[in-house]
Structure formats: structure tokens, C-alpha cells
Write a protein that binds this DNA or RNA. Structure first.
Lengths: 336, 336
DNA sequence: CTCTCCCTCTTTGACGATCAAGTAAAGTGG
DNA sequence: CCACTTTACTTGATCGTCAAAGAGGGAGAG
């Protein structure tokens, strides 16, 4: 910046004024001279220095806790990130991605926040409720605004949230199965403490209760990770019961696909002998055989919404609703 | 940091020494006093300030050009990012994601570089060769190390690259089809100037040439985006030919799936009446019906490798090979 | 002809850390 | 007992930018 200033015969501050669009008090002549110098020298402001001075980094953090090494493994996450990235770009922000290891809450996940690398953060958490609650609380202490993703509300005053209506989605899915005459409906999922999973599980209960069907704990399996092999063992267990289920709800699409495959391997027809449903509606759900009946979760839109909320807050734009719940949509295809 | 210094009765510099693990000359007593003060005050170094002074941000950029709004749309990209993120985390770096709009090369994509927000960058480019070449050249001018992804070598001295052997993969895939008796093999892909796509196309030619089969331009379709609907129209066109192909190679899995569906909609059996192959081996390729024969591209590993290369370079670690080509693997399943 | 005001810059001093050089105090050797 | 090294810090400048306050000169008012 000093080079530009010397080149155009003005002070550094004047260049800064131009760069920051403070044209209120600047003659046309000077402006053009500085712009010329900037172009000639190929000048671009150093955002690190600006960040230091102004305490604003123009960066938002996408912070997630994930069980596995491949931290973006869930086919949902990249949808969300895509949305976040698009909005951030349009509004002049960058996105810093950072993964924390799950386990007892510590500041690992919030590192970018503690180190003042981001102005705010999106938190994609997992784990037991009390553990999850630690993060937004800590962020509030640090006076950093955060948006929680897929977190059932709560988390303190300075916090925002965006989630899909997983509970309603699961409920409608289960109701659909009940309408088709199913009474013994199993629910299988990974053994992972994800809030969205809890919500799906509740929605399933809601539907059963509304239909007067008693919950059978034997039909609820939470095991392993999101893995088709795990799904297969769960299906084996369910189908070996004296009074096996006639429908299986998978906690997500991957499990559903694993379940379908195993069912067919055992000689059952889907959906005639066994109905199977998924959750998320990832891009290829309609291309499996039979096409998967599932719930469409608007991951991209969630990302957009979350980034909008956070950036609105950072930019001082008035926010209508701090807690956004996006509707989900039943996608009835061939598998149930 | 000054607070910590005052709290523990030493100078700021001494605190800095501890934070940066310069323990060569520091008494145990002082160290403990400072650590106590840091804990008490909840101190964490401000990386923005450190970045300004030391001209190192401990951040690498993941910069990609993408056609659509949903910039992470390709199911490959998130795999790569997952690898990058894991390695970066383990080596103390953060990842800044930034998307540039395609078109004539400008500095939009390199914004984080120009603004000194990153120490180095991974470039995932698209577009015509000459246009792509502009980016690494510009980065070299700016003395910022970059790693090119899926870019057939070249790009100047200060550049590194990581790619999968798309050409060999496509060749082996085509050879597999030829072995099964196919002579009229179509190649369909999106009309997008991706280097990896060029390579796949070449591999296809390689195999044809080796088998003495003449290339029939009518069998090579490059249209639209990576979309199953587009695949369907291409399949319609191909199957309406007087001498239609008996096999179709899709430029990626998505097109292959779209092609399979359309073929079946037209009453053809896959693979008996029409063989179909994909490329990438995304997670669900084995679950479609019939399971997709494709080429496994190690996206996660590419991301790891690329991040390793870049960070090794940044940290001054000696690098064996600046240009890495990862092997791909044929996955023969049911569709061809 | 002075006084005030505005317009267009300039000067000064942070922001929070690091780097390079400097300095007491303690230890060592002859 | 003095020179010389080593230990354990301290001091001052600096990275690139921005906010706040200052300053010079001309215009208009009285």
C-alpha cells in the first residue's frame, strides 16, 4: 500500500480510503491516479493485516465433529458445504473448514474461533446432548456468533440454528408405511449420537403412537457406523425373528440400500415381501433398484440458509427468525 | 499476550517464546508460571497477527473453478476435500475453500492468494488448456506454491501436481469391453472442458487403436452437463442409429446410470443387449441395478497426496516426486 | 480583512504478534 | 580476581492496514 501511495504521490491513508470505498472526500484526479498505480503495481490489499487492524477476517468457519477419519464422509455434508460456499462467496466471505475429533468436548473444534481466524462459525455437532451444548456455550463466552446445524433448538441466546424437519419427515414416512398396511415396522440406524438421528427416531415413534401401534424395542436397532455391511447384519437379525417386520426404515439412504440388498439376497422381494425406506434422498436414490422411497432433506438449502443467517448477523442485518426449520419432502418411489 | 506477560511477570517476548516452543533457554519455573497465566486467562495466540508478522498463515487454499452454482456438485470433489482436510488438520494447517467462476482466466479464483490469506493452494481447474495454464503461471509470478489436481503435468517449474491415471483407466475399461466382444463402443460425456475428461477420452481411443477399431465420431457425444436427463437423450440418439453401439462408456458414473435407465426404459437388458460402464466409482455404484462396472478413482487419496505435497513444500520438507500419478482400478461388476 | 467552514488530504498511533539485537546475572577457567 | 561464556530474559522495530484527529488552503459570510 505504501508503494502505491508513493507511486501516486499521496499518503497511505488516502489509498486505504479508496480501497475501502470511502470516496466521500476524494477528488476524481487523485482517485484515478491511485487506481492507475494500483493496477500498475498489481496491488491487492493484505487481508491478514486488515483482519488484524479491524478484528474482522471476512471468513466464516465450517466446524464439524465427525467420527471417522474421512470427515466429510456423509453424503449430506458436502451438500451443506456447497450451499455455504455459494452464499459466502456472493457476500464476500471465505469459508474455513475445520474438523474436530469427537469425544469429550474440548476446544479442538473451536480452534479457528479461539485463534481469531473466523468472524463466526457454523457448527455441525454430534455426541450426547450435554456434550453438544458445550460448544455453543463456549462460543457465546467468546462472543462469537454461531449457527447450529441440525440441532434441535436451544444453545443459548446468542445462537442461531438451521435444521430440517427430520421428525416430521420420519413421521410421514412411517405413516406412509402404516397406510400401506404395515404394523411391524423396524427402525435401523448407526449407533451414533447425531441429533438428526434422534429426531428421525422420534418421528417414527410419533407415527406409531398416532396409529396406536406399540413400540417394540426389538425392532429398533442402533449399531455400528453408516455402513451397508452393518445394515446387512441388522436385516439378518430382524428377519430371523419369530414375528419379523414387514417394513424397515433406514436411518439414512445408505443403510436402506444395504438393507434392500440383504433382503433380496435372502430371497425377499422389495417392496412386496419387505418394504424399505431411506432418509436424505441423496442424488442416486432414484437409480437404485427398486428406486428408494425416502425423505428429501434439502442439504444445499440448509447450507445457504445457515450462511445467510450468520453473515446477516455479522453484517448487522436484521434477522427475522433466529431458528429456521426447513421442510422436508416425502419421495415415494418403488421400495415402499 | 501482554496480559499473560504481565500476569506472569515476564516480557511479551518470553511468552511468545513459550508459545512457539522455543524452550532452549527458559527456566522451568518461568515456563510453569506462564503456562499457569495462559490457562487462567484463557489465552490463545491470535493467528491473524502471527500471520501478519511472520507472513505465514498456516492455511492452504482449495480453489476450484466450477460451472454450476453448486460448486461442490461433483461427487468426486468432496472426497478430495476430505483427504485434504484430514492431512491439513494433522499437520496444523487449515483449509480455505474458495470457488471461482469459470470463463476467461482472471484473478477471481486466486483471490485468497492475492490477498495473502493462504500460504499455498490446491487448484482444481477446468476449461481449455491455455486458459487453465494461466493460473499456475500467475501463482508462480506471485511466488505461491500450488498443486494442480487432475492436470496433465506442465504448468511451470514451481508447480506440483497430483492426478489419477484416468487415461489408463479408460483404456482398460474399453479393453474390457473389447474382450467381451464389443466393437461398437460409444463414449458419452458432458460438454465440459475438464482435463480428466480429455484423458478418459484418450484412453478410450488408445484401446480402440490397439484393437484396430476405427474411431467413429458418431459414437462420441459430448453434451450438456453431468445430468441423467442429458444421458437419456444421448442414449436415444445412439440407439436410433442404423448401426447402434453395443456398449456405452459414460464419462462418469452419473451419466452411466442415466444411460442404463434409459436403455432399460427402451426395453433393452443391461448388460446383455447393451453394456454400460461408468467412471469414478462413487460410493453407490455397486448398489444400482445392475451393479455398475466402473473405474475406481481414489479421490480421498488424491486429496491426501496433494495436501502432503503442498505442506511438505511449505514446511521445507524434501519432496521426492513433484508430480504424482495415482493408479486407478477397474471394478468389474454387472453392467458390462 | 478576518472568521468560520468545508474539502481534501496527512499524521499519528494502534492491532497482536515475531525477529533481531541487546543486557543483566550467573557460571567457568586460569 | 578478572575475563569470557552461557543462561535467561528484555527492548525496540516491524509486518500492512485502518481509525481518529490534524492541517493546509480556498470559499463564502460578515
Amino acid at each position: 500500500m505504501r508503494d502505491v501511495a508513493e507511486h501516486s504521490g499521496v499518503s497511505v491513508q488516502t489509498v486505504s480510503n479508496l480501497v475501502n470505498n470511502r470516496l466521500r472526500q476524494m477528488s476524481e484526479v487523485t482517485r484515478l491516479r491511485i487506481e492507475e498505480a494500483m493496477a500498475e503495481l498489481g496491488y491487492h490489499p493484505n487481508l491478514t493485516a486488515r483482519g488484524l487492524r479491524s478484528a474482522r477476517t471476512a471468513t466464516i468457519g465450517f466446524l464439524l465433529l465427525d467420527e471417522g477419519a474421512r470427515y466429510l464422509a456423509d453424503p449430506m455434508t458436502d451438500q451443506v458445504i456447497a450451499g455455504v460456499g455459494d452464499v459466502a462467496r456472493d457476500r464476500g466471505y471465505s469459508v474455513l473448514i475445520h474438523a474436530g475429533r469427537p469425544g469429550p468436548p474440548d476446544s479442538g473444534l473451536l480452534k479457528p474461533v479461539l485463534e481469531s481466524r473466523v468472524d463466526g462459525a457454523l457448527l455441525f455437532l454430534s455426541g450426547p446432548r450435554e456434550q453438544r451444548a458445550w460448544y455453543p456455550a463456549r462460543a457465546a463466552e467468546l462472543h462469537v456468533p454461531v449457527v447450529l446445524l441440525e440441532e434441535p433448538r436451544g444453545g443459548g441466546a446468542a445462537t442461531m440454528s438451521v435444521r430440517a424437519d427430520n421428525r416430521a419427515g420420519a413421521r410421514r414416512l412411517a405413516e406412509h408405511l402404516i397406510e400401506r398396511g404395515h404394523r411391524r415396522i423396524a427402525f435401523i440406524a448407526a449407533h451414533q449420537p447425531w441429533p438428526m438421528l434422534e429426531q428421525r427416531h422420534r418421528g417414527y415413534h410419533d407415527a406409531l403412537a398416532a396409529a396406536g401401534i406399540a413400540v417394540d424395542r426389538e425392532l429398533e436397532l442402533f449399531e455400528g457406523t453408516w455402513d451397508t455391511a452393518v445394515a446387512a447384519t441388522m436385516v439378518d437379525r430382524l428377519l430371523s425373528m419369530p414375528d419379523p417386520p414387514t417394513a424397515i426404515m433406514g436411518g439414512n439412504d445408505l443403510l436402506a440400500i444395504g438393507a434392500m440388498r440383504q433382503a433380496r439376497a435372502r430371497g425377499l422381494r422389495v417392496p412386496q415381501d419387505l418394504a424399505v425406506t431411506g432418509f436424505n434422498d441423496f442424488a442416486f436414490a432414484e437409480f437404485v433398484e427398486p428406486p428408494l422411497t425416502t425423505v428429501h432433506v434439502p442439504g444445499y438449502e440448509m447450507g445457504c440458509e445457515a450462511a445467510q443467517l450468520l453473515i446477516d448477523h455479522l453484517d448487522g442485518v436484521a434477522i427475522k427468525r433466529r431458528h429456521v426449520m426447513l421442510p422436508v419432502e416425502l419421495r415415494i418411489r418403488g421400495s415402499a
